[in-house]
Structures are given as structure tokens and as C-alpha cells.
Design a binder for these strands. Structure first.
Lengths: 218, 218
DNA sequence: CAATAAAATATCCATTTGTCTAATAATTCT
DNA sequence: AGAATTATTAGACAAATGGATATTTTATTG
């Protein structure tokens, strides 16, 4: 048998009732589904079931599937960015750009590990021009400062780093190291083939940050 | 009006007829569609139209949608690997591991740029455990040697590289630098935000290879 | 307390999906 | 030349989808 949904008669829920499943929780489930199965692959009914509500309500609350997707990305991006800046390990300027960049990379990756969905969405949407890609990129940058990017610019402008295009280390970090933490099933499958020394995720993260920082030095 | 398909009466095509659209071409279109819109997002009818045949035929030729996907990945992987090993810039051992690895990275990335679909598929499937992911990983490694991976192992075993887990540089290369060449729409959108010095793709590639090789040095 | 608004489900609808079958035309075999 | 085979299209089909509507229950308001 599939999951036995207890039929609930229609009607506005009474206040005493448990779990009125707020929008925030719905958007969490939705983002998860979109990141895992893609926009077309995720269905409203499936998400609604995961939320424990009817698909009609889900549609009514967010207007349309596209509206649900947009709201989910918006919330996910807010979470990601908020965690990244609050987690931010603020080192004094005296610590040197190397160390500050390293810390920022680790923060970045630990946050991606905690909220992998956005990177997964970028991976899914990134290979075609679409309104959804535009929206992702826009919300990624809209009014947001990403410490890693700032430090990369600082290093470039000061000449402390080799003169590579900033998109190079940034993409290596976000999509390369990001894959290490966000594409777990893939990395584990490949890992098994490449070498059998298992390494804890935190060591993978520092290794990746090391590699990028060292690679950038002038 | 949508694309006006000229109706062709059923029946085996005469040999003189143009464009019998062989399997190979179909698999190309299919791989493109799957990589761009995901497994669920790509439809048989859409792919068949792109091939100029009926969807029934497409299904008959490959048995099922899953069969089409599998065959497309198989062919794509063959192409990718074949190009990578034939393109392989074979440097003499005297050239040093650094230079050989650098050349292998460039080969790898230039090949990904020519056949981006496989990396796109890995990005799409990598965030969930699925039979499709298993198949991708299996065909990626089945009887295939990837020069980059061999050189990484050589460096690790000889102690010339820092002792990082091989999955780290490999993933940085495949997914990070891979994104630079395979997720063009995304990179271009982000690039515009990050910095406005446009750089030719070949320079992006050598920059990424530089960064990785330098970052690995002991 | 009655009337209205709000929040939820059930249900319907047109469209699209993957798959299967029947029909049809060209080729190959005997 | 006729029979069998092969490669193709058209069309049917059930299941699933996004969306819209009708209905039911509760809360709020006057």
C-alpha cells in the first residue's frame, strides 16, 4: 500500500487542529522537490502530499506552479544568504587575505552543505537560457553581498592573487567544491571508484578551500 | 501556427527518400534534450519532432523512454571518452607531472566544452540516488581510463602533490571548471554580475587548469 | 445569532505523457 | 510474382498533470 492519506472533509480548519502547515514549510518541501526532480519533474500533487495538504490548496496559495517555484527559490536564497553572512568567520584584516579568503570559502561550503538546493537548482537550470535561470541569478545577487566574491575582488585589485578572471575561482568554488557537498549521491558513487580512502566532509571542505587559495597566490 | 509538419503517409520509406534519420542522430538529439530539460522534462514527442520522425517510431526503435535515455548516455559517453583520449596531448615523462597534469586538464575541459551534455546530466542526476545516476557513473568508469585521474593518482602516490583526497581536485575540475564550459548560460549571467572583463573560453580553461595544478603542488 | 468571509477539500477539465496496436508502404526472400 | 518481413505513421488509451470551480467547514463580523 502507498501512504494511506486519512481523508479530511473539506472546510476551513479549526484552530485546535494540529499542523496547519504554514507557507514556509510548504516552500521548504517544494524547493526540495524542485531541486531533486527538476521543475517539470516535480508535480504539485506530489509536493502537496509531502506537505499534507491538497494540491488545490497549494495552487491557490501560490497562484500557480511557477509562483510556487519562485516563492520557494526566494525563501531558499534568503536562508542561504542569511546563514552565510551570520556564520561568517570575521577575521581581522591583519590576518591576511589568504586566511580571510580561506575562512570565507569554508563558510561558503558549509552553508552550501546545509542548504544544497540552490546549487542544485543552478546546476539544473544553468544549461539553458530560461526565465527561471534569470530569476535565480537575479535573486542570488539582488541586494546581497557574498563575502567570498568581495575577497576575490580585493585580491585581484591588490595584485595579491594571480590575474585570473574572478569567474574562475568563483565557479570552481560554487560548482566544483559545491558539488562535493551538494551532490552527495554522485560524489559518493564517484569516490568509491576513484579511491577508497573515505574522508569526512569537513576535511573535503578544507581541502577544497586550501586548493583554491593556494592556486590563487601570485 | 506551430511548426507545420508535412504529413507523410505511413509505410516503410523508400531508399531514395532523404533523411532516414539514423539512430545515431536520434541519440544526439535525445541527449541534448535530456541534458537540457531533464529526464521527466524531455518528452518523446518533442525529441521525435526534433528528429523529424514520429514518436511511435522513436519508442519502437529504443523500446521505451528509459531505453532511449540509456542509449543516448551510452553513445554520449563513448564520444566524450573517445575524443578525450585521442585529443590527449601526450607529453613525455620528462616534462614533469605538473605540465602533464596541466595538459590533461586542458584536454579534459576542451572535451567537456565540445560535449557538455554528460556533465549536465551528472549535475541533474547527482543530487538524488537513482538508477540513472548509477548507470551514468557505471558507464563513466566502465573500461575507461581518464588520463586526468591517472595523473592525479600518480601525483598522490609519488608525493609530488599535497595529500588531498583525489575526489577534491577531480570534482573541482569536472564540476567546477566543467561548469565554466558546460553551463554557458549560467556562467555568462553570473559573469556579468561578478566582473565585466570578458575572457575568451580558452583563457578560462587555461586559468582553471593553472589554478588546480598550482593548488595541488606540495 | 445571522451573515459574510476565509480556508480547506473534492472534483472536473483540457492537455500532455508514455506505451501499444493497427494500418500501410517498401524491401527482401522464395 | 507472391509471401514474408521490416520500417514507418496514425491513432487509441489510461494515467498524470496544472489549473479552475463547486462545496464544505470554520472563523469573523455586525
Amino acid at each position: 500500500m502507498t501512504t494511506e492519506t486519512v481523508k479530511r472533509r473539506p472546510g476551513r480548519p479549526s484552530q485546535s487542529e494540529q499542523s496547519p502547515v504554514d507557507d514556509e514549510a510548504c516552500l521548504d518541501r517544494a524547493l526540495e522537490a524542485f531541486a531533486e526532480r527538476g521543475y517539470e519533474g516535480a508535480s504539485l500533487r506530489e509536493i502537496a502530499t509531502a506537505c499534507g495538504i491538497s494540491h488545490g490548496l497549494l495552487n491557490a496559495r501560490f497562484g500557480s506552479k511557477q509562483g510556487l517555484w519562485t516563492a520557494a527559490v526566494e525563501q531558499g536564497m534568503d536562508r542561504l544568504h542569511h546563514r552565510m553572512v551570520t556564520l561568517q568567520t570575521r577575521l581581522p584584516k591583519s590576518a591576511g587575505l589568504d586566511q580571510r579568503l580561506h575562512a570565507a570559502c569554508v563558510d561558503f561550503l558549509e552553508t552550501l552543505a546545509a542548504y544544497p538546493a540552490i546549487i542544485q537548482l543552478m546546476n539544473i537550470e544553468g544549461s539553458r537560457n530560461s526565465a527561471r535561470l534569470d530569476y535565480i541569478v537575479e535573486t542570488f545577487f539582488r541586494n546581497r553581498e557574498w563575502p567570498v566574491a568581495s575577497l576575490l575582488e580585493e585580491g585581484r585589485d591588490s595584485g595579491l592573487f594571480r590575474p585570473v578572471h574572478i569567474a574562475v575561482p568563483f565557479t570552481l568554488l560554487a560548482h566544483g567544491a559545491g558539488a562535493l557537498v551538494a551532490l552527495r549521491p554522485l560524489v559518493e558513487a564517484v569516490d568509491e571508484r576513484l579511491s577508497n580512502e573515505p574522508e569526512a566532509q569537513s576535511r573535503l571542505i578544507t581541502s577544497a578551500a586550501d586548493l583554491i587559495v593556494r592556486g590563487l597566490r601570485a
